[in-house]
Design a protein around this nucleic acid. Structure first.
Lengths: 215, 215, 215, 215
DNA sequence: CATGAATGAGTATTCATTCAT
DNA sequence: AATGAATGAATACTCATTCAT
């Protein structure tokens, strides 16, 4: 049978299955981000992925499970992205914090959809979407991130770069500030140019760091 | 039909109409915040408000319009709340900024539902929810708020409290930071105690102000 | 607006509502009997009843509930039908039993659909269809019917018509026999003419009664 | 593909084929009886039989055909079971009829699933399930069974055990009665103990026979 | 003005059957 | 022969909105 007569590709091995799964998740992600959970229809997702409805249910238990898979994945990606940035050596702790901030900014741009899934999380009050598992996961990951920042700040104190202070508070402020700025940028038409946002982020970091810096 | 058979009150004057309208909006707000827009049903809202479905459509064009009305209202309330805080005289500009921050915090607690409507706005990328009108309004109000902060900062410079710097950037950072902290508090189980949050907010303000303060 | 432009009738009072409800139940009954529970679609039922799908759910919680309602109703109708037959005075107990048998036969003909709903009950092993409530109801009603027969037989003994024997056993045999004959008639193409079945039923009653009659 | 990678057994000869076929039918029977025709899924049947979906369609045209095969088989089994009982010599015709009744009872217990398939047949008004072929078959077999009983009764008359009467009617009554009692037992919670049912069956036979016996 | 019955398009999910491997 | 991935039609149920009363 000529290749072009084929209506669909049979995923017979693990790899092929994974490709289809990814295609479906990708389409789902795009829709969740563009239209939100409830307005995302399974049928539209499959159409976008070039699969049939039935196929969707071959790969996912139901609509909610894809959402959760995506959420978990986003969380994981963010963690990896930030860890990556931390791996490089930095002469000063100040530089390290700046790098972390830029890395988050980068993530929000390079993996915009994943970032949006994560940031829409307060939509997550809607507890139908967040079972205990996801909540725990979220807390664990978020906590890990915050602790990472906290450790950096402590190092700054130990190294004499920062004055002695409540690092945990500063950590939360850093994180909240970053989130807040990205959100502000995201939602408002006041939206800044790319370089503008980068500028702003660095400026904010400097502002805060100055507040805790020695001399 | 004899008067005593009527189960409902006929709103013949503006005041009575307004009461019904408020009841419906209140019920809608509660549901939007608890269940989200899509999972809020008109029928449930009217039931909660003790009105009939038909009545709903007498007072609102459709479901979306109530949402928009609530959003506008929330925006307006926030503006008034902050303006109120600004009306009192403050010996130092630093104190004024602190008061502003605390006022926002207060709003997020006293008018929690309205605050949540505003903060879920990034859900609002979903453009079905944001027509041009709402977007303009949002921008106008948000801009007004930001400008208010900017003015305060400029006054701080003029009065010699702050060093000369890009106040607009600082403004955005202030706003983003506040939003970010409230969000962080809202979404995470790490949630702080009441006094803890207040503390954190003041701490963050101080941190930033120290960054722009003279001496 | 001229009468013929009306798309539907608004059931505003209890009576009108009842009429619609009946129409839906009737259509559902016909379909359940003809096609079985699973192959009965709500949409087909509503179409047959001249109503819309939504209307169906205005009158019934779901498909299963209509089925249960019909089942309950059928049970109730059968009981009333047989009681009616028993109300008339009968010179002999033998005559009374014959009348009862004929009454059941009559029911199976006059209310064929209801009879079929009842008789398909062993389909009811499928416990999804029979909740505790229905089962209890069924047992109660069935027991009442059987007891009714038992009482008659006892009266026959007391009156000297029948010899002393285990009336409960005979009762079960009577009932089983009737059911069995109607079923045999229903399912086989051997099907008897109307008068043939009547004949057979009376013959079977006589046969059994002779077995317990004195002399 | 190397031999050892094969997870399945290739049925290359008639015997191996028959084994697979039986496994599928057995699983199907269990499901039909437990869940009913419509709620039986091909996929569940194959899973239970340890075969793949595709294999199912290798052995059966479709779902309906298995059902029909099972039905035919059940009919055949019942006939053989009863014939078996008739093969033994019986001193009296009365004893023979009793033996026949007990044999049917035995069948309903030993081959419960097959018995249930047969007895749910009035579900079979649903003509999707009964094509002409099955109907004819049913009639032929049923008729054969009935004729067998009829012959016994005639022999009873000829032998002077029973009085002269319409044996065909009695035959139908016998059959209906048996079916009715088993059904009554099956569906009601009033359900009798094992010995109770046996008792009842024999009692019913005696009752009827007394009605046609010569003094 | 107020009501709530009626509508029917819309959506998640299932499952018999096919067919490339 | 055997497999099981893929298909998509089918179906129960929901809900925003209308409009006769």
């Amino acid at each position: 049978m000529p290749e072009e007569d084929r209506r669909f590709i049979r995923a017979t091995n693990a790899e092929a299955r994974e490709i289809k799964r990814r295609a479906l998740m990708k389409a789902a992600l795009a829709s969740f981000v563009e239209r939100g959970y409830d307005r995302t229809t399974v049928s539209a997702v499959t159409k976008a992925a070039g699969e049939s409805v039935g196929t969707f249910y071959l790969y996912f238990e139901n609509k909610l499970q894809v959402y959760r898979s995506l959420y978990r994945e986003a969380l994981e990606m963010l963690r990896r992205h930030l860890e990556e940035a931390m791996r490089k050596p930095h002469p000063t702790v100040t530089g390290e914090v700046r790098a972390l901030a830029l890395s988050y900014l980068e993530f929000s741009r390079e993996k915009r959809d994943y970032y949006l899934i994560l940031s829409s999380q307060h939509l997550g009050q809607q507890d139908f979407i967040n079972d205990g598992f996801l909540k725990d996961r979220l807390d664990t990951e978020a906590l890990a991130l915050l602790k990472m920042i906290d450790r950096i700040l402590r190092r700054g104190i130990d190294g004499g770069e920062f004055r002695r202070h409540d690092t945990w508070k500063t950590t939360m402020i850093f994180w909240g500030m970053m989130d807040g700025l990205l959100l502000l940028n995201e939602r408002s038409n006041l939206a800044l140019s790319n370089s503008g946002l980068e500028d702003l982020v660095l400026y904010s970091v400097d502002l805060c760091l100055r507040g805790i810096s020695i001399s």
